[in-house]
């Protein structure tokens, strides 16, 4: 079992294999994701990082032929169990994507949308302000909440997408390469924001930028491809150890830039 002592797990992955038709994209993954920490998943292209991440809130369900073996346990049950509603699961486990994807609506509507869909009862104005503040965007946009979200720059758009994810009050936020379309300063701002959010939320980030994993995460899972191209987790540990004293040769080769 890939786990590190000390922090309580919020998500437990047990013997998970992920298939696209007959192709096995990930094999026998065991992983305990610590609560209110930032866990990075690193590894070379095609090793199954994003597939694994998307399996944590059943985003792969939309892909024809996708199939799961094993379990992803969250809040006392297997998320692939029959009684789990994927829509309410995705409210509790939100997602931020590689390219900022705000709706072509106002900044306000982008944040309020999810809450409306889920039948939010309180003050939408308060919710929008709180979410934008949490995403460190409020100061930038408070005077133009009715402006189009598309008028924001890339970094602001990504923070808006984070605010939108926060507005439905999730427990876990999945981030799939959230900075790959951003410049270095906007990237560092997102990383600072992730650090602040980690006091209240669990964050799991997939990144091909290993410097980002080193900077921004508490824990790192290193994935590599086996000969049959199925991804496995070869090492999971506190980030400091992975980047100073990795145990696995494949991790060593990857973090030193000698492979992958």
């Amino acid at each position: 079992m890939n786990s590190v002592e000390g922090d309580t797990p919020v998500l437990q992955v047990r013997g998970l294999s992920l298939y696209y038709g007959s192709f096995r994209a990930a094999r026998d993954i065991d992983l305990s994701i610590p609560r209110r920490r930032i866990t990075a998943i690193i590894g070379s292209s095609g090793c199954g990082k994003s597939t694994l991440l998307r399996s944590f809130n059943r985003m792969n369900d939309f892909i024809p032929g996708f199939r799961v073996e094993g379990q992803v346990r969250f809040a006392g049950q297997d998320i692939y169990g029959g009684s789990v509603d994927p829509v309410s699961l995705r409210r509790r486990i939100g997602m931020v994507f590689q390219k900022p994807n705000p709706f072509p609506k106002s900044i306000y509507e982008n944040v309020a949308w999810g809450a409306r869909v889920h039948g939010f009862q309180g003050s939408l104005d308060d919710l929008v302000e709180r979410s934008l503040r949490q995403a460190a965007l409020w100061d930038d946009v408070q005077d133009g909440l009715n402006h189009s979200a598309l008028s924001l720059d890339g970094g602001q758009q990504q923070r808006l997408c984070i605010a939108r994810a926060l507005a439905v009050e999730p427990e876990i936020i999945l981030m799939d390469e959230p900075c790959s379309a951003l410049d270095p300063i906007a990237t560092l701002k997102i990383e600072d924001l992730m650090r602040e959010l980690a006091t209240d939320y669990t964050i799991i980030i997939v990144t091909h930028n290993m410097q980002q994993a080193a900077r921004a995460s508490d824990y790192t899972a290193m994935m590599a491809m086996d000969d049959d191209r199925a991804g496995t987790v070869v090492e999971f540990d506190v980030t400091e150890k992975v980047f100073t004293r990795p145990k696995d040769k494949r991790t060593e080769d990857y973090v030193t830039g000698r492979f992958g």
Binding site: I185, L188, K189, E191, D192, R195, A216
Partner: peptide, 9 residues
């Protein structure tokens, strides 16, 4: 320029 890198500091 906005201040970043709170962790490093």
């Amino acid at each position: 320029m906005t201040k970043t890198r709170a962790m490093l500091d």
